[in-house]
Design a protein around this nucleic acid. Structure first.
Lengths: 314, 314
DNA sequence: ATAATAGTGACAATAATTGTCGTGAATATA
DNA sequence: TATATTCACGACAATTATTGTCACTATTAT
């Protein structure tokens, strides 16, 4: 086997094994231990994080961030990766932010100039308008890691109704919706699946509880959103108002659209979400006519009056 | 220079030059032409699409889809690429669909099994809820290519008001908004910038008109028409207001963001757009403090008063 | 016809890789 | 403390890979 090929296979082998002895590899590859030693030194120079200990029970280990063997991509594949990462740029505090940036810079570095230009132009000419991000979610990476590896976390959560609480949870899934990140998790405090708004998680650290096997739950989030302390939200929408609301995912299932393009909203919502709906209806302006609830009308009036105050000639 | 390194550099060089002669490269790399010939044969075997012609004015060419030199990514970078592509899966018929799939499969192939499992679990546990896609846009790739390379297209467009028309356009930018894809383009029929809904483009083929230099237009809808009868728009934004405005493409170039996350808007706009800004600033609520112009303030006050009227208890 | 260009085969010169052996050093275990 | 295990390194010869040179062929534009 030519040396270069052996090095690549060695790279994959050590990545797979994580721990190994020099003699082992020498047998597998049918070369002398001296050669394996030299090879390992080369891998080390190529960036593979190898660590070794002498003595019985010693041996080699691959540490933390492993390095994949070099892969040759086509220009189209490289551009596709830029496209995908670019599409997500309106999401901030994403997991793997740093990693995507460093991956793209590796691609960029190996590209001929004309593709670089093409990518730069593409960035200026393509956009994914996504819901305005509302609230930072600094612990997303930790939550994702816990969801993927079935770990238990201790989180400090700031809920509107209960104030700040500390509890152990085992994350199940994460989803971005309307500019917020949500985390469904088994809550050891409430002994059931709950949904948490990630921007309200103030702190997340490893927990002590024994992880449950939650593999069957996954992404099913439909049934979890039962409103607590519900109020009935009703409104009429003009055609334009209907179009705007149709694109709001949380609302569209509750839209009753008529032949002429106008629609009605009729949905049970949590009383605690009135502040959100206040802003939402104000932004709809004259395209919506709210029927109820009264509390919401009052809140909107109050908000409008305050705004009007702000806009007095000063 | 060791052979492996020379091969990688050769790969980058031929990608950059696209056309070259063997003697040229031999000079650049200080090796004999015989060696370059052998090297080129190896590159060819590695997948670089080389083509050669003999005779004067002959030489080598790199065809269509070039191949980048092999790049070693870390496991984290690879996972980040999966994450990004996964995040876009609710968009169908995206440009670079096939390319991202083949890139990911290359990554997948070179990964140790435990990262594969990790990725498979992540796919089940992370979701990006985005606006329901409405309408297919089969010509996106063609439009993107035209926007990036400043090409003119002949499109068949089905508009509600005018029925089906054929016209030449030069695409400027593409954006996804609320489940639709839009294309801003210079329309040779209307002699101005227009926005087209991509799902209403029935056909797109190369056009005959001479491309214009539209490089200055890019993503900003604002500058498409230089403000006629301009007024100076100035406002201060809170941190949250800044975040919201940053995702507005037409606005973000005119945002002056401070250290603390707050920002100021300072831009010349057309007087005729005051109705638009009225709604926009109302939707920003208390996150924006408008400084001027007076007309806008007055319009906002009027609008707010009317809204307040609408929301009186009935 | 001539010059420019790619392409091939043979072989010697040169360079890189590998295996062998000797030696050493750290460390767990008996 | 002695011993087995394991990594580590240097020297050198044997082996293998790479390179350059040269001679030659083939194609094509001018």
């Amino acid at each position: 086997m030519p040396k270069s090929k052996r090095l690549m296979e060695l790279m994959m082998t050590v990545n797979r094994k994580r721990r190994f002895k020099v003699g082992e590899l020498a047998d597998e590859f049918n070369v002398s231990t001296r050669t394996i030693l030299r090879d390992l030194q080369e891998l080390s120079e190529l960036g593979v994080p190898l660590y070794s200990e002498v003595g019985p029970h010693g041996g080699y280990q691959v540490l933390r961030e492993r390095v994949l063997p070099p892969i040759a991509f086509t220009e189209g594949e490289a551009v596709a990766m830029f496209f995908a990462v670019h599409a997500l740029r309106h999401y901030s505090s994403l997991p793997f932010d740093a990693e995507s940036a460093s991956a793209l810079s590796k691609f960029y570095l190996h590209m001929p100039g004309d593709i670089r230009d093409q990518i730069d132009r593409m960035k200026e000419r393509v956009d994914f308008v996504s819901p305005t991000r509302r609230g930072d979610a600094p612990h997303l990476s930790v939550l994702l890691d816990a969801a993927v590896h079935q770990k238990v976390l201790t989180i400090t959560y700031e809920s509107k109704s209960e104030g700040t609480t500390s509890r152990q949870v085992q994350p199940v899934s994460l989803y971005a919706h309307n500019g917020f990140w949500y985390c469904t998790a088994y809550c050891f405090l409430r002994e059931g699946i709950r949904v948490f708004r990630c921007d309200r998680i103030r702190d997340a650290s490893p927990g002590s509880a024994e992880p449950l096997k939650l593999s069957d739950i996954r992404l099913s989030r439909q049934e979890v959103v039962l409103p607590t302390d519900p109020v009935r939200l009703q409104a009429k929408l003009t055609r334009i108002g209907t179009q705007r609301c149709e694109s709001e995912l949380w609302l569209s299932p509750h839209l009753h659209v008529r032949e002429d393009g106008t629609a009605e909203i009729d949905v049970e919502v949590s009383r605690s979400e009135i502040p959100f709906y206040t802003e939402f209806f104000i932004s709809l302006g004259k395209e919506a006519a709210l029927i109820g609830p009264r509390e919401l009308k009052a809140a909107i009036r109050k908000h409008l009056a305050e705004l009007l105050e702000n806009y007095q000639e000063g």
